[in-house]
Design a protein around this nucleic acid. Structure first.
Length: 951
DNA sequence: CAGTGAGCGAGCTTCCGCTTGACTT
């Protein structure tokens, strides 16, 4: 049945694809009678946070997960906020249609999108699932004519994947908030990506360089040179008395020769002695070995290889590459850019072959089209390779593109055309040269060359290399044509020293490559994985290299020690296998999830990813158990790393620092570590240096009275000034001298504060005068802002300037007033909302420490993100209060339980509460400061909550 | 990670994968 005949029967069909650009193309192939519209990706998902959870689940203990872990992991789905309009549009279109075709991609996610569409749109007309792998008229028409049913098992597999990722992410991240720092995150993909970067850095730290020497000889044939036969060439010393000379690859990361390496390790003295001994020697060609050279073209691009090559050749990051590719795709220049397939459609192969003939001649065209088997294990192959679109490729010049779009298109075009060209062929030659040293030793040199006799695909495209020293595929090296036994003259023999290098850091491109090889992440997410670990501060960029932060060392350390199985490099691969079993109907989703979440006892699969435990014993603990009992995780331990010489690096809530000795001890030392210090650069010497110098951020000058250096610093409670006491000043004991310190006023900032400001601040408290009874009144700055103090009676001031300007008269007037209790009394309500139907009390909106909140005098509830003081209705107020009443008591008991544990903890909690208010205050003062400083301050502000480490 | 003098409301952070605009910088 052709679409035309269906149309003739009347009726209208709605076809839904994922991408709008695809919809546009397909529309043209299907003609009238078909309406093609895009879902624009997923339309439904688990709720993001509390705000998105539907009201009826709000009180449930599992609501924050969006998955009912108590009832077979039933997921709650909500239509994505940004998809509401699109869903509405689809519903309207469906209402006018007689048939619905779900034409989403044919992979796990695509099948799920189709299912969600069906669930949300609730079609009353017949529903068909249609799939195609190629966007051509024939392929589309055939797909329409041969629809199939929705594959529910595949949908199950996707849902299982989604739930696992949610449970992993939303259960493990809070562990990091408690044990390391708030706002951190963990996830199946990002945590492994971070771990890879950290492990590489550990290798670099453990690495010790080895030195080795060899000789380079310049040999001459005595013939004059021409284009095909250079008269002289260089060769490296390869063996002495038949024993191979050690090279870089013979050394292990410890800087010593690898075990069993039967090689001669030359040091400088030996190498120079040998060079001298060879100075007068005569040389001859010992052997000439020639082998045919053959190189096949590279496969067409998929997402990862495109990102790698764009990085190597165009210097583009993964994100930029994808953005430019997206534009090319939308404007019809290339096929879809998020793919794991290297397959070219028949039309593409024909187009490429036509272009090969046209541009390079028939001699470059293989007899048969080349087929590239997907080497990506985990590939879902819903799309083609990335290639120029259409059945006739436009040359870059024909596109009219400019800038990055032009360059990226050209790269894709060249790679595609080259993939259908002949192999490059030639010869590779190895020449060995022998000479006898004056001490009788036999020295053998060797040189190898490569000549390309037929360039084949290399004419069109040469792949770049990650290592700048690596030889590119098309690089030729010609050697003179020499024969065995031929005598050669040594023009020069020199000794060369080399040092082994530590393994290179990952770049965006090489990390993505590594992830793909390990089957972690998907084409649509590779670029954003890098974005996530950068955002979290787990890695930072130094040039193109990805450097792990000390913070990531602490996080990875915690995860490895307590969630080993979850950051295992094979976790995702095992999960994929299990999901495939679910998709094939050989396994069930619920038992699998139960085993992952609740652990042993849950019937299910024999192994694989469902075991969340450490995997280092028989105990198969579930995720739930691991995140419930946090007592086993010693926060201080996981964030401490010995540097050597008694110095320990610690990752605190405010960043990394080095420390020596016990806190409060006489010899205790501590110093900040720059946040952008690469971990492999933290040597004992550097740590000593840090500990030796005062960590004053801004030196303001010297106090003319005492001569002490005055510095401005950023502290736990915000910016402050302090004096540096001369060395030897007793800090403890009877004669202890404390450095004077003072917080900056809100109107001041670290980079603008002057020495005069500092001295004035440090002169506080200021004596305002004495009251009639002779009691002294002072003015000063404190935790809650400026205030007056008279004995134990304190009164807040309105502005910091008053500390210096207030007169005794004004102060006495303030004390004449009755003491104001609390802020509530001082501040009138922002808004009145009428009488609460439950409590019968008047409800008002007030401004508090945590922002605006509604209260009936008994229950308080903070306004949510979406609420606004101006627009909030009385009904909304009552609703918030009712919600709060519903879950209020539960929280209180939880708090009490923690407080009971130890008195020490209680004080710690108090301390953190204090920190928070102070920190909050300082954020405001920073508005003029640099952006990074402001960011830091925000981080500090949020760094409240439970502090269990770093005390 | 400096050290202070009240009293009183927490809520939110976070995952991976599928898609584009609509925003601001």
């Amino acid at each position: 049945m052709s679409p035309t005949s269906e149309t003739a029967q009347g009726g209208r069909r709605l076809v839904i694809v994922e991408s709008p650009a695809k919809a546009k193309t397909i529309k043209g192939y299907l003609g009238p009678g078909y309406v093609v519209e895009a879902s624009v990706g997923h339309i439904r998902d688990l709720p993001n946070g509390a705000a998105e959870v539907p009201a009826k689940y709000k009180g449930e203990s599992w609501a924050r997960l969006g998955v009912n872990v108590e009832a077979d992991f039933q997921p709650i789905y909500v239509v994505n906020h940004d998809k509401k309009d699109q869903v509405k549009k689809l519903k309207e279109l469906l209402a006018e249609s007689d048939e619905l075709f779900l034409a989403t991609d044919e992979d796990r996610e695509g099948e799920a999108i189709a299912w969600h569409l069906q669930e949300v749109l609730k079609p009353k007309v017949p529903v068909r699932r249609m799939v195609f792998h190629e966007i051509t008229k024939d392929a589309i028409r055939e797909a329409v004519a041969n629809p199939r049913e929705l594959n529910q098992k595949l949908v199950d597999a996707q849902e299982t994947r989604r739930i696992l990722d949610r449970l992993y992410g939303y259960e493990v991240s809070p562990v990091l908030w408690k044990k390391v720092m708030p706002r951190l995150s963990a996830g199946r993909v990002q945590s492994v990506a971070t771990r890879l970067v950290v492990e590489r850095e550990r290798e670099r730290i453990a690495f010790s360089s080895a030195e080795y020497w060899d000789l380079t000889g310049t040999f001459s044939t005595g013939r004059s040179s021409d284009a095909s036969d250079p008269g002289s060439f260089t060769a490296r010393l390869s063996s002495v008395d038949g024993r191979r000379v050690a090279q870089g690859r013979d050394f292990g990361p410890n800087g010593r020769l690898k075990e069993g390496a039967q090689v001669l390790h030359l040091d400088e003295a030996n190498a120079r002695a040998l060079a001298d001994a060879l100075a007068q020697s005569s040389f001859s060609v010992r052997s000439v070995e020639s082998k045919p050279y053959r190189r096949s073209p590279y496969a067409p691009f998929r997402t990862t290889t495109l990102q790698q090559e764009a990085s190597r050749k165009l210097g583009m990051g993964a994100k930029a590459t994808m953005q430019v590719a997206q534009k090319l795709y939308e404007n019809g220049f290339i096929t879809y850019m998020r793919t794991d397939s290297t397959t070219l459609s028949e039309t593409a192969i024909a187009a490429a072959r036509a272009q090969v003939t046209q541009l390079y001649g028939a001699g470059y065209l293989p007899d048969k089209p080349r087929v590239y088997a997907g080497k990506v294990k985990n590939a879902q192959e819903a799309h083609e390779a990335i290639r120029p679109s259409g059945d006739r490729f436009r040359t870059p010049a024909e596109t009219g593109l400019t800038g990055e779009q032009f360059r990226l298109y050209e790269l894709i075009w060249k790679r595609t055309v080259a993939s259908q060209m002949k192999d490059a062929t030639g010869d590779s030659v190895t020449v060995r040269i022998a000479g006898r040293a004056s001490d009788g030793r036999d020295a053998e040199f060797s040189a190898s060359g490569k000549t390309i006799t037929f360039h084949g695909f290399l004419k069109a495209y040469v792949e770049g290399a990650d290592d700048p020293n690596a030889e590119l595929d098309d690089r030729e090296r010609r050697l003179p044509q020499v024969a065995e036994g031929e005598a050669l003259t040594a023009e020069e023999i020199s000794a060369d020293g080399h040092a082994t290098k530590p393994p290179a850091r990952y770049t965006e491109a090489t990390l993505v490559k590594e992830l793909e090889e390990r089957e972690i992440g998907r084409p649509s997410t590779y670029a954003s994985i890098i974005g996530t670990i950068l955002d979290r501060g787990y890695v930072f960029k130094k040039g193109t290299a990805l450097v792990p932060s000390f913070l990531s060392f602490a996080v990875v350390n915690l995860l490895e020690k307590h969630f080993g199985r979850l950051v295992d490099y094979d976790f995702t691969a095992a999960m994929e296998e299990d999901l495939d079993r679910i998709a094939r109907g050989e396994a069930q989703a619920v038992p699998w999830l139960r085993r992952f979440y609740f652990g042993e006892g849950a019937e299910g699969l024999a192994g694989g990813a469902a075991d969340a435990g450490n995997g280092d014993g028989d105990h198969l603990g579930g995720l739930k158990e691991l995140v419930t009992d946090l007592g086993a995780i010693d926060a201080r331990e996981v964030s401490s790393f010995p540097v050597g010489s008694g110095i320990v690096l610690r990752v605190g809530r405010y960043g990394p620092y080095v420390e020596r000795g016990e806190k409060d001890a006489e010899d205790h030392q501590r110093a900040d570590v720059p946040e952008d210090l690469a971990p492999d650069e933290l040597t004992v010497e550097y740590a000593e240096e840090l500990l030796a110098k005062p960590s004053g951020d801004f030196e303001l000058g010297h106090d003319p009275r005492t001569g002490h250096l005055i510095v401005a610093k950023d502290g736990r409670y915000g910016p402050y000034v302090t004096e540096v006491l001369p060395e030897g000043t007793p800090k403890t004991g009877k004669n202890a001298v404390k450095a004077r310190t003072a917080s900056l006023f809100k109107s001041m900032s670290l980079d603008t504060v002057t020495l005069d400001d500092a001295l004035r601040l440090m002169s506080l408290p200021r004596v305002v005068g004495t009251d009639p009874e002779g009691v002294e009144i002072t003015a000063q700055n404190g935790r809650y802002g400026p205030y007056l103090k008279k004995g134990t009676d304190s009164r807040s001031l309105e502005s910091e300037d008053q500390i210096f300007s207030i007169t005794l008269e004004e102060a006495l007037a303030i004390y004449a007033q009755p003491k104001q209790r609390g802020r509530a009394a001082a501040k009138p309500p922002l808004k009145e909302l009428g009488t609460d139907p439950v409590s019968g009390r008047p409800v008002v909106v007030k401004d508090g420490r945590f922002g605006p909140y509604v209260t009936d005098g008994e229950t308080n509830a903070t306004l949510r993100r979406d609420d606004d003081v101006e627009t909030v209705t009385p009904e909304r107020g009552y609703e918030l209060l009712a919600e709060k009443r519903a879950k209020g008591p539960a929280k209180k008991t939880a708090k009490k339980a923690t407080a009971k544990k130890t008195t020490a903890k209680k004080t710690a909690a108090k301390k953190t509460a204090a920190k928070k208010t102070a920190a909050k205050k300082t954020t405001a003062t920073k508005t003029t400061a640099a952006k990074t400083a402001a960011k830091k301050a925000t981080a500090k502000k949020t760094a409240a909550a439970v502090k269990t480490n770093d005390e």
